[in-house]
Simulated assay, not measured.
Amino acid sequence: MKTIEIDDDLYQYIARQTCHIGEDASSILRRLLAIESYQVTAATPTQFGDFSALVALVKSDEFVNQKKLVNRFLSILAVLYTCNHSLFSVAAASLHGSKRRYLADDEQTLLRSGNNTKPKLIPNTPYWVVTNSNTARKIFIIESLMNTMEVPDYIIGLVKTQFVAK
C-alpha cells in the first residue's frame, strides 16, 4: 500500500462519499472511479448477470447531464431489467410497502395501490413503476432491486452516488 498526500478539501470530499462505517479511502475511490467494476465485469460476471451496462449507464454523459431525477430513475430500472429479466421479475414482485406496490406489470395495479402514484412505463420493459415518490423512496426501490438481483455492493454504491449527483 502506498501513501499519498492530498489537499484537505479533496480529503473531505472523499470522506463525505462514505457509504458505510469503516469504509476505507481505497474502497471509496474504487467505487467513485468504478475501477474495480470494469475489471470484475469484464473478466468474471456474477452468476446472475453482467452489470457492466449499469456501470456504463451511470457513467455516461447522457445520464450525468440528465436534469430530471425521474428520467434517471427510469433509465436505471430499464438497464436493470436488461441485465437479468427473470431476477428483475422476482425482485419487482417482492418489492412493495404495507399498502403500496412500487412496480407492476400493468398501470391499473399501481393506480389501485394509492392516490397520485403517477405510474410510468419503464422503457423497453413490460413493467410500470410509481414515480410520485421522494428521492429517498426512489433510492430505496433501486437499491432493493439491486440487492435482490445480487448486484455487487461497489456497483450499488456507484449507482446510488451517481443517481443523486448533479
Rank of each mutant, 00 (worst) to 15 (best):
T3P: 02
T3V: 12
T3Y: 09
T3F: 10
I4W: 06
I4A: 08
I4T: 03
I4Q: 07
E5W: 10
E5L: 15
D8R: 08
D8M: 06
D9T: 11
Q12P: 00
Q12K: 10
A15C: 12
R16Q: 13
Q17H: 05
Q17T: 04
Q17N: 08
C19S: 13
I21Q: 12
E23N: 02
D24N: 15
A25G: 08
S26L: 15
I28E: 06
R30M: 12
L33I: 10
I35E: 12
S37Y: 04
S37G: 04
Q39D: 12
Q39V: 13
Q39I: 10
V40Y: 12
A42D: 12
A43T: 15
T44S: 13
P45F: 06
Q47D: 12
Q47V: 02
Q47T: 11
G49L: 00
D50H: 11
F51R: 01
F51L: 02
S52C: 01
A53W: 07
L54A: 03
V55C: 07
L57M: 10
K59S: 10
K59L: 09
D61P: 07
D61I: 13
D61A: 15
F63K: 12
V64E: 09
V64D: 05
K68F: 11
L69R: 09
L69V: 14
V70L: 07
L74S: 03
L77K: 02
L77C: 08
V79I: 15
L80D: 01
H85T: 15
S89L: 07
S89I: 00
S89F: 02
A92T: 01
H96N: 09
S98G: 13
K99T: 15
K99G: 13
R100S: 06
R101L: 14
Y102E: 07
Y102L: 14
L103M: 08
L103V: 05
D105P: 00
D105L: 03
E107P: 08
E107K: 13
Q108W: 07
T109A: 09
L110Y: 06
L111S: 04
R112L: 13
R112W: 09
R112C: 09
G114C: 04
N115I: 06
P119F: 04
I122E: 04
I122N: 02
P123G: 07
T125E: 01
T125M: 00
T125K: 01
W128H: 05
T131N: 13
N132W: 05
N132A: 10
